[in-house]
Design a protein around this nucleic acid. Structure first.
Lengths: 263, 263
DNA sequence: TCTTATTTGTTCGTATGTATT
DNA sequence: GAATACATACGAACAAATAAG
């Protein structure tokens, strides 16, 4: 007996469109027929088509350009190897500047990184608390927009105590070979332990604009913290990544990693 | 009426409701006014209210029960410490049976785990490939529904080569103190290295039903793999977790973790 | 068990707003 | 400016799930 799940119409439409896309009916880069056309062709209202497209957007399968149309994305998921990406050998390979560069180049894509903010500021409360700073102590904020072959893929905001950043020469746009961690290591403040807290959440307005997301899509929020041998936190960084274009990879030995003295 | 809407109506409504909830107007466990009432009160159509509620659902702020109403959730985010949770001391603490038990108990919540499937099956293609098995070799599938104080929080499906599972005594419902890994260790097949690949995606129909999700919410999909000292994969597991109620925590030393010989 | 009221889910037709070509 | 395409919004209606009687 055919116990077909009685799905709603917009879901059936979404299933149909998804199949058409993955079966090559609408190849990557092509534009779907307009919502009005689809509504006519599939015998439903345009509102229903629109709702179905929302699902495909949330899946990262299409990108919608208002006034232009709905375009099929090429979705090559990027793998972020959290452990490897902070090893010095990786960071400095092929003259790459920091972890992200090396990571993207290995995929055959062209990394680009725009620094959109680089200045001393009063840290947000959560950051000040984590860094053990008072309200009036300043931090270097370093906010970057990052692209892989012109596709926005990462939004990184790091906070480093101002005094330390100045001594390490991190107040310039170019942090030199090996990036931030190599400069910190030269001062004897190189991190020996990292922690990351991973969430997924609705994008902020900023993120929505930068990534071209809809509010039914989500982003990974990764709070990355770098600890020295004396358990001092030297970097607090927040990365935002659209969930549909990343896979986060972690690995660790069964018994070796001890919990640090800080939470 | 003070128009100047930089945001769409449904977003303003969502913002308003969110504020009302976080400010205690609607405490956890309480039921919001019906959509019709809210529509009347806020001077918008019911469809607009409904759309606003979708946003709150995606954020995990409310749970919607058709026919009954919209209930405010108590949202205590659960922290999953991926590294610690596989250490033997943690798994066996307080007589807990495996990692999940210990994890939830530490939060003062009551863990419950229902085994909904436990039998030999032909593995899915991806699983067979990862485990290095042929098409006709069977695996033990072990599918569990897991709850924290009766709230569904985790859906775990593990695959273990059948011959190994039988020898290790893992074909029973109760795997004994320390759980699966302790049994494998007793055979000299204890894992010494773990890898996890983390994605976020739209829930399947199964997951939607189990967790009570809407399709605009997402789940973490964690593919967990356990490797022995001889780089043999002994367990392939897929965990599904609603993104809004979990934070994934990882930590590792700067230079110690080497990439395994397998991808 | 059946009936009815309540509440959310879905869909349509229609209209208007906004961005792009 | 005009045409095109997606975004939002409303009112109405019916479906489906739940609760109360």
């Amino acid at each position: 007996m055919t116990v077909e799940a009685p799905k709603s119409r917009y879901r059936q439409v979404a299933d149909q469109l998804r199949q058409d896309i993955t079966h090559g009916e609408y190849p990557p880069g092509s534009t779907l027929p307009s919502e009005a056309e689809l509504a006519d062709k599939m015998g439903v209202s345009r509102v229903t088509i629109n709702r179905a497209v929302q699902i495909l957007r949330a899946e990262g399968l299409v990108r919608v350009l208002r006034g232009r149309g709905t375009v099929v994305r090429s979705v090559p998921p990027i793998s972020r190897h959290s452990n490897q990406r902070y090893a010095r050998a990786i960071r400095e390979e092929r003259g790459a500047r920091g972890a992200f560069d090396a990571e993207i180049r290995r995929l055959g894509l062209e990394p680009r990184s725009d620094i959109v903010q680089l200045e001393p500021v009063n840290p947000p409360e959560a950051v000040a608390k984590a860094l053990g700073l008072g309200q009036r102590e300043r931090v270097l904020i370093r906010k970057r927009h990052m692209y892989a072959s012109d596709e926005p893929v990462l939004l990184a905001t790091s906070y480093i105590p101002w005094a330390l950043a100045e001594r390490a020469g991190l107040t310039k746009v170019d942090t030199g070979p090996g990036g931030t961690y190599s400069r910190l290591a030269e001062l004897g403040q190189g991190p020996v332990r990292f922690t990351e807290d991973v969430r997924a959440r609705i994008p902020t307005d900023d993120e929505e604009a930068f990534f071209g997301l809809a509010e039914n899509q989500q982003v990974f929020e990764i709070v990355h913290m770098s600890w020295t041998a004396t358990d001092r936190l030297v970097e607090y960084r927040v990365d935002a990544l659209p969930t549909f274009q990343w896979v986060l990879h972690f690995e660790w030995p069964a018994e070796a990693v001890e919990s640090g003295s800080r939470p």
